Amino acid sequence: MAGETSQTVKLSRPVPLQDGSSITELVFREPRVIDIAKAGNPVKVDVSYDPPKIEFDDAKMLAMAALLSGQAATIIGAVRAEDWTSISWTIAGFFFGSTAAST
């Protein structure tokens, strides 16, 4: 879609593909409501804490990462843990747009 924002996560180690090539980065488009309906909301915010407590639902985050990157969940699942942390926070950033800072 025109004007759509995307974020790139460079992987600390390439993920090999079956065809012999590898992925060195993942590009995530911004989520839409249909993506949340399909994958569920992967970001949980508990505002009863100060600052608010943020938690990720890993299964929903994996499904969301696959949808937003266009890669199979098995490819996303093959990244290293440190890359998974970067991916999770990158996707979470889409849920805390500029309007969150002004409310």
Rank of each mutant, 00 (worst) to 15 (best):
E55P: 01
E30R: 11
K38I: 04
A100F: 15
K44Q: 02
L68K: 06
A101Q: 13
E55Y: 01
A59H: 00
V27P: 01
R29S: 10
G40V: 02
T90P: 12
S22F: 15
P31L: 12
K53N: 12
T90G: 14
I91F: 15
M64S: 07
K60I: 05
S98R: 13
N41K: 06
F96C: 08
I76S: 09
K44T: 03
D58I: 03
Q18H: 04
R29V: 11
P52Q: 08
V45K: 03
F28L: 01
L68W: 07
A73K: 15
D19Q: 07
P16K: 07
G70I: 11
L17A: 02
L62D: 00
G93H: 09
V79R: 03
V15A: 07
E30W: 11
F95T: 08
S6A: 15
I23E: 02
S48I: 01
P52I: 10
A66S: 12
E82Y: 04
S12K: 14
P51N: 10
L62V: 04
A59S: 01
E25G: 06
L17W: 02
D57L: 00
W89I: 14
L62W: 00
V33D: 02
K60V: 06
I34V: 12
I87D: 11
Q71G: 05
A81T: 10
D35M: 04
R13M: 03
I87T: 07
S98C: 05
P16M: 05
V79F: 04
K44N: 03
E82I: 07
S102A: 13
S102R: 10
D35G: 04
V43C: 00
G77L: 08
S98E: 14
Y49L: 08
I34G: 05
V43Y: 00
A63N: 04
T8Q: 06
A63Y: 00
L67K: 08
T8M: 02
S88E: 03
K10C: 04
S48H: 02
R13C: 00
I91P: 15
A92S: 12
L62M: 08
P16L: 09
I23D: 01
D50G: 05
Q7C: 15
A101I: 11
D46E: 08
P52F: 12
S86K: 14
L11Q: 10
I76W: 06
G40A: 05
A2D: 09
L67I: 10
Q7A: 13
A39I: 01
G93P: 08
W89P: 07
A63T: 01
I54S: 06
S48T: 12
G93L: 10
R32S: 07
E25M: 04
A73N: 09
D57I: 00
L17Y: 02
V15W: 06
S48K: 05
S102T: 13
E30A: 15
L11W: 07
A39V: 03
W89F: 15
G70V: 08
T99R: 15
A73Y: 09
L62P: 00
A92L: 02
R29N: 13
I23K: 07
T90F: 12
F94P: 10
L17D: 02
A100Y: 12
D19F: 10
L62R: 03
